[in-house]
Design a protein around this nucleic acid. Sequence first.
DNA 1: AGGCCATGCTTGCCGCGGCAAATGATCGTA
DNA 2: TACGATCATTTGCCGCGGCAAGCATGGCCT
Lengths: 167, 167
Amino acid sequence: MPTPRLTPQQDRAWSLLIGVMTWLPAELDAHLDRAAGLSHAEYQVLRWLSLSEDREVHMTRLAATASVTPSHLSRIVARLEKRELLTRSNDPTDARRTLARLTAAGARVVEEVEPGYAAEVRRLVFEHLDPGQAEQLEGIAEALLTPLRSDCVGLLPPRALRPSDIS
Amino acid sequence: MPTPRLTPQQDRAWSLLIGVMTWLPAELDAHLDRAAGLSHAEYQVLRWLSLSEDREVHMTRLAATASVTPSHLSRIVARLEKRELLTRSNDPTDARRTLARLTAAGARVVEEVEPGYAAEVRRLVFEHLDPGQAEQLEGIAEALLTPLRSDCVGLLPPRALRPSDIS
DNA sequence: AGGCCATGCTTGCCGCGGCAAATGATCGTA
DNA sequence: TACGATCATTTGCCGCGGCAAGCATGGCCT
């Protein structure tokens, strides 16, 4: 058991981070609900589906990329299937798996929602950070998420080469 | 309408941040539930109460510091009152307000839980960051939270002077 | 083949927490 | 003082999502 308490600096950073983790998702949830009647988690599912080969992924992988638990994903997919934004089918190569596939209507919804969503992320996050901080944020988030969920970090697009990597 | 989409770097940073915002609170919730049968929000309420003058604060201010909505706080305080970890009374200076005050039992719970909680925050967050990143995190979190919730940033202990501020 | 554990997904149960309406108190103004 | 606007808090309603149990199916070993 090394240090017993947080340093004042850590304490302050942590308190601020709690605020961000509480209010930032709430804000995006509200935006997406207004824009398309979707929760943030539902939108993440649609978005990752739309980025996948053939717009089709099996549940486990989709859960990892969209940051939801398997049981949560199951309910999300059930809701979205009812709205005909995606369909479920069996994976022919492994009958245990379920494949989720985006429908044309689902793809349309993603296209319609995406610009406003990106604008919202910019307005709430990147407008307030200079380019250096944006890069720091990437490094910090990766450092925190990797030990927390080693499975999902590897599924993201790899870190791009940037000028600062060369020096 | 400036830039239409996120840059690849922003996109990756944002995806990682979503993961952190999803899984980090979940992990602490689970720890606190195991340790004391408390949710993370409930613990924040107790903790900020314990740091307040006379262990007594009115609801609005408590909601701001503990990062919960007023209605959420109302239910949290009702639960904690039932467990006799705090009491509610009327503010004599303004009858609209409710004062929450930590009981001796509540103070004991905070004392018991705090070291393990701090250890958990260190294990999940600060162990994975070098001192520079911890400081960057403070700056980034403050930059994001201030426009989001201008009211609560000011209630935190002020930013400490550090060597890097002098140079 | 048959037994056994691991894997993938779903579901019952239930508590948490958001929104908006309701209640009660205070303040500003005439 | 009387009245309307605002503030502080609570509550009804209801959907979301966690956990753990359930139910296939696949993989492995003998």
